[in-house]
């Protein structure tokens, strides 16, 4: 008995360093596998079925994908996703501009920086409600502003031509704040000697920014790119809050389209929803792979 105990502790002693990481990883990995890894595979599986979420799944092969290719809503969503992606990237230069504006040492600047960051801290639900109200025809502040500028009244969120732009503007507000804070931290850590040396050589303004400062801000720009691209493809809250994809589905994006198909009052089309999710997942995997490859290269270099 005592021999068995001592031999098992002996085994533990010898192999502790090899076994320990797996014991430390076990609880976190179990949760991650159950709730993230496995559901991804299951979603792909479900996307080949016709399923209402309750009854039996019926295998229909690529049926959902074929239907998707002929679905106008799918192309509207895809087009809007591209629009989101491209316009959302504006938050990066905008965030840089705000950061440059605030990167001074005057009294109270710390408070200013925190207050400029505010929009990112509050929920997108609140942001969506605020902007819906500002866009309200007749009395909304932005509607009034647009009326004064263009001379005509436009109900932005009810107009198929402008609705997606209106929602993206609401999204740019918190996202710009996020990019700003990334750049403020980056600016705090740039090498002052290089900047001074460049100044001695007569560089200033835009040239100094472009050739000396921006290269040093590359890590901040990379993170800003990652969070902005991912954020733009993930956009769900604002679309759901501000328009529910309307009017007539014109502000749909893939994430909302999927939700609507799988869980709407029109019936639960889990298989079709899963197929849309798989398409979105594949699109995002392109970007995720790019990001991971870059991070991997950094990891190898360090």
């Amino acid at each position: 008995m005592s021999e068995a105990v001592s031999s098992s502790t002996g085994y533990w002693k010898k192999n502790q360093q090899r076994l320990a990481p797996w014991l430390f990883l076990a609880p976190g990995m179990a949760m991650f596998v159950i709730y993230v890894l496995f559901p991804i595979i299951e979603s792909i599986w479900i996307s080949f079925h016709d399923w209402d979420g309750l009854g039996d799944k019926v295998w229909i092969g690529l049926g959902n994908y074929v239907e998707l290719m002929g679905d106008d809503s799918f192309y509207t969503s895809l087009k809007n996703n591209v629009l989101w992606l491209v316009l959302y990237l504006l938050s990066i230069p905008a965030g840089l501009a705000v950061a440059l504006f605030l990167n001074q040492t005057v009294t109270g600047i710390r408070l200013y920086k925190s207050l400029f960051f505010f929009p990112f801290v509050i929920s997108q639900v609140v942001v969506g409600l605020i902007f819906t109200w500002f866009y309200a025809p007749d009395f909304g502040l932005f509607s009034k502003l647009i009326e004064n500028l263009t001379g005509q009244q436009i109900a932005i969120l009810a107009d198929e031509r402008f609705v997606t732009y209106g929602i993206i503007v609401a999204g740019l507000w918190p996202q710009t704040a996020y990019c700003m804070i990334l750049y403020l931290t980056g600016l705090n850590n740039i090498n002052p000697e290089q900047v001074e040396a460049a100044r001695m050589d007569g560089a200033k303004g835009i040239k100094l920014l472009w050739y000396v400062v921006l290269p040093q801000l590359a890590p901040a720009t990379f993170i800003a790119m990652v969070v902005t691209v991912i954020g733009s493809l993930r956009c769900f809250d604002l679309v759901s809050i501000m328009t529910s994809g309307g009017p007539y589905g014109s502000s749909q994006v893939l994430s909302y389209f999927m939700y609507e198909q799988a869980l709407s009052e029109y019936g639960f089309r889990m298989g079709y929803g899963a197929a849309i999710a798989v398409v979105l997942f594949l699109i995002m995997m392109i970007f995720i792979t790019l990001f991971i490859v870059r991070m991997l290269m950094q990891e190898r270099n360090s």
Partner: peptide, 24 residues
Amino acid sequence: NLLLFFMFVAGNFIPFQILMVPVR
């Protein structure tokens, strides 16, 4: 090690919708 690490990182970026039906 690195494989697991990047699995966690990638998991962090995926769209919620791919998890929605199975998790629900």
